[in-house]
Computed example of a mutant assay.
Amino acid sequence: MKRSMKAMAAAAAVVVAAGLLTACGSSGDDGEGVTLYSGRSEELVGPLITRYQADGMQIQVSYDRKATQILEEGSASPADLFFAQDAGELGRLSEAGLLAKLPADLTEVADPEYRTAEGNWAPVTARSRVLAYNPDKMAAADLPEGIDGLLDPKFKGQIGYAPTNASFKSFVTALRVLRGEDGARAWLTAFLANDPQKFEKNGQILDAVNAGTVATGLINHYYWAAAVMEKGEENVPSRLHFFKNDAGALVNVAGVGVLESSPNKEAAFEVIRALLNDDSQRYFAEETGEYPIAVDVPLTVAGLPRLNELSPPKLNLDDLADLDGTEALLTQVGAL
């Protein structure tokens, strides 16, 4: 399947909008509609919101939003929902008491390891941290099972990473949870001593690996899946290596929470139900390469494992909430 990101976004509008329009055709509890803060990209969300509005649905979206803004706004936030790209973002809001309890049919869709014990946000899709590699630059047999192997001198100057990107920060937060502050600092210090190459975004890392500028790169799996769906696997030189039972195998989720201060909770719950329906979940699997949470379907890229075939580390996704501590550590070791 060869699809451009633009075409994929348009497909989202058709698939997801249909479910949401059925679920949320009426306005919210107070008759004023639903406001969504989105941490997910406008490229994906924008086309479907345009569809909703054209069909008379009362929903407004504010893009490029983060948990920090909602924390600043507190109970005065105009948002009804927050669609976060990262469990840690939702965890921060949960710790602050800003998220409402969700109905069980929303929170119990996912396997326990991918949902919150508090029951106040719902995972929608999942993605795995992986090592992209160029077989012409690094043989598959030379790839390690865990991130400690990346400290080997053979990887010196040959690893791309994106330290300011949310997904890398979540990985470091997981590392802190699993190994403690000192253990995480020790690994980061050794990693930086191996001269990894700094990039701003995961997509730039993948481009560099494909071009052979670096042999390997730490990214999320769906960047590679999207490239393959758009260009065909034969035109994407890189391949993916999945770590096992290691911080480098972190499986994080994008999810949705409803603000406790929202006067439109029932309408907001219906938005989440639509995102979790079969059609919407299959869209994520078939069009974006993300792992669906609510349906067990394979990704359309041959060879990629299913979600239940991955070997992520054992941790509670709520524990990824301490972004401030992670940023402080990254600054301390000179990674940012």
Rank of each mutant, 00 (worst) to 15 (best):
I147L: 14
D148S: 13
G149R: 05
G149P: 05
D152W: 07
D152T: 08
F155W: 08
F155H: 03
Q158N: 15
I159N: 01
I159S: 01
Y161D: 06
A162F: 02
A162D: 14
P163H: 04
T164S: 06
A166T: 13
K169C: 05
S170P: 14
A174T: 09
L175W: 07
R176P: 02
V177C: 07
V177Q: 14
L178M: 12
R179T: 01
R179Y: 07
E181C: 05
D182Q: 15
D182P: 03
R185C: 06
W187H: 11
L188Y: 04
L188I: 02
L188F: 04
A190P: 00
A190L: 01
L192R: 04
L192F: 04
A193E: 14
A193H: 07
D195I: 08
D195F: 05
K198I: 13
K198R: 15
F199D: 09
F199R: 13
K201E: 04
D207F: 11
D207C: 14
A208N: 13
V209L: 12
N210A: 11
G212E: 09
T213P: 06
V214H: 02
A215V: 07
A215F: 04
T216Y: 04
G217A: 04
G217D: 02
I219N: 03
H221L: 03
W224P: 01
A225Q: 06
A226Q: 12
V228N: 14
M229W: 01
E230W: 02
K231N: 15
E234Y: 08
L240F: 11
H241E: 12
F242S: 10
F243I: 10
N245P: 14
A247T: 04
